[in-house]
Nucleic acid binder design. Sequence first.
DNA 1: CTGAAAGCGCTAACAA
DNA 2: TTGTTAGCGCTTTCAG
Lengths: 341, 341
Amino acid sequence: MASIQDVARLAQVSTATASRALSRPDMVATTTRDRVLHAARQLGYQPNVIARSLRQGETRTIGVIVTDILNPFHAQLAKGIQDAADRHGYTAFLFNSDEDPAKERRAIETLRGHLPQGLIIVPTSGARENLAALSGVPIVELDRVTGTPAVTTVTADNAAGAAAATRHLISLGHTRIGMIVGQQDISTATQRHDAYRSALEDAGLTYDPALVLPGNHREDDGHRAATRLLTLPEGRRPTALFIGNNEMTVGAVLAARALNLSIPTDLSIVGFDDSRWAQTMTPPLTVVAQPTYDLGTQAAEQLIQQLRRPRDGPPLHIQLSTTLIVRHSTSPPRTPALTHH
Amino acid sequence: MASIQDVARLAQVSTATASRALSRPDMVATTTRDRVLHAARQLGYQPNVIARSLRQGETRTIGVIVTDILNPFHAQLAKGIQDAADRHGYTAFLFNSDEDPAKERRAIETLRGHLPQGLIIVPTSGARENLAALSGVPIVELDRVTGTPAVTTVTADNAAGAAAATRHLISLGHTRIGMIVGQQDISTATQRHDAYRSALEDAGLTYDPALVLPGNHREDDGHRAATRLLTLPEGRRPTALFIGNNEMTVGAVLAARALNLSIPTDLSIVGFDDSRWAQTMTPPLTVVAQPTYDLGTQAAEQLIQQLRRPRDGPPLHIQLSTTLIVRHSTSPPRTPALTHH
DNA sequence: CTGAAAGCGCTAACAA
DNA sequence: TTGTTAGCGCTTTCAG
């Protein structure tokens, strides 16, 4: 590959001039600049960013760690980040933690060697310790939050979303509303759970811990939890389910089908996070939609802005709003009378 | 961040020895080695891979370009690649071309500056020229093929898959089988199309160009093409559709629904590429499944093997087999008599 | 077995 | 406006 030396030689200038002609065109005479540019084009010159990074101590690279690239939610976050980073001339290094703190740690270590100028992370439950290894690098926590002081966060308004979902079910007349909630050490899970609980209590309903089951964000977990909830004895069984993330919702819907419960007649369901699957399943799913792509771009924009000029004040906490989209997976509960039809 | 100089100083050795102790432990006395290792750990030393790459001319990095990370098929390819690369100590740089040759070109240029030691690419229609910029770098074409001589390819057996799909529909009694096919300059599209045509002709059916509509791999394209095909006058309208990729299949299913055609009664559908969506839609979709994750890992394994020791003979063309999964979106066509029921 | 020194490709002082 | 030179952090000759 042609180096800047080759370009300099061909243009009959020093490497310094060649370098300047390419990166600070105005510092160089027009005629020489043209000579250099021409030589560069002729040789197909592409700067060696490795050498440049080493010299400048700036890699123009940001690290990105999501927990599951196979989850469309995360794929969309990643795309938002990449598109925005790209617009600003940064390259994003994408890693997967698979929701596993050990993998996350390895990703961080690998990343560290590449000297990323910043990191956008959807943290696992072990992130707080893992992140300690990266001191000095600006961090943006995306979607979830570890509670580490002084880091920027970009999240959706989980509380409002969960409250809207719960109130929607209550307004339809449901009184036994179950919830399948993510890991309790993940902020999104606790926020959604807390809001669900408050909404219930605000409406004068009692919060019943027996109707709340945990899962680890995966489809299986949703399936398992839903099966348990839906096989509760009649009269104790929830007539509606609010499910804390997209993957578990899939599992729950399949569990309901396996039990021959028809949605929404026998069971109302509200999921968190919209997706094509939610839109096209039968019946189309009522969900709390998140501005997923925007979450990604916002995270990147915030990080890059911070790289350009480090903030001194308190860290920014950006929260994007969620919206309840009512489709056809929710309806009033079947009344006992009708059951005996 | 601690550099190797810091380690050397703390261990009271030269940087050369420190370097050796870390990367070639057997070239150094045990006692000094221990001193160095201890110092390194104490400082949290992480080698600067940028500097190392510059020195060695080896970045231990491979480039990956897929056409659409939001498509679960591509997400899975990417994951397979990353997991395999990781196992071999390589870092994968992931880019998106969005099926756009111009974006692909930009991705290749950015990548080039990072000196990837190899590239795995799902090529767009413009890839052949774009790839010229990367001469000298081993390339693996994944899923699709540009026909460039001497590059390794890893693909699914598209012909067998498409033939199986078509024969399945024929064996159910369909005679008017439409196809929605991808861009004609994409190898997978033409292979699937050719196999469909041959299967038809082998069964003594005539290939009707009016029943074959092109699309650009996206959901909309599938929707549009299906709508046109399904609004053909009765008697000309296809009773079955074979659709050339996963995204277009979604569009086609939605188009059928919009036209109030019930699947499979009014219309049989076979899609290419399995997905959770295909498995859980109603009715579950008959598809040609591909070993997606394995395609990814194979591509990475082949590339890395090639990096270790460059092949001299002709390039490898790896083909993984596809399987027809018959679910419930296909059935015999409705007979005219029944139509008047 | 260890150290001194060179150099990967680039850019930023500094001089001219 | 241009050239000379040093040095980013690392590994690898080459001597000792």
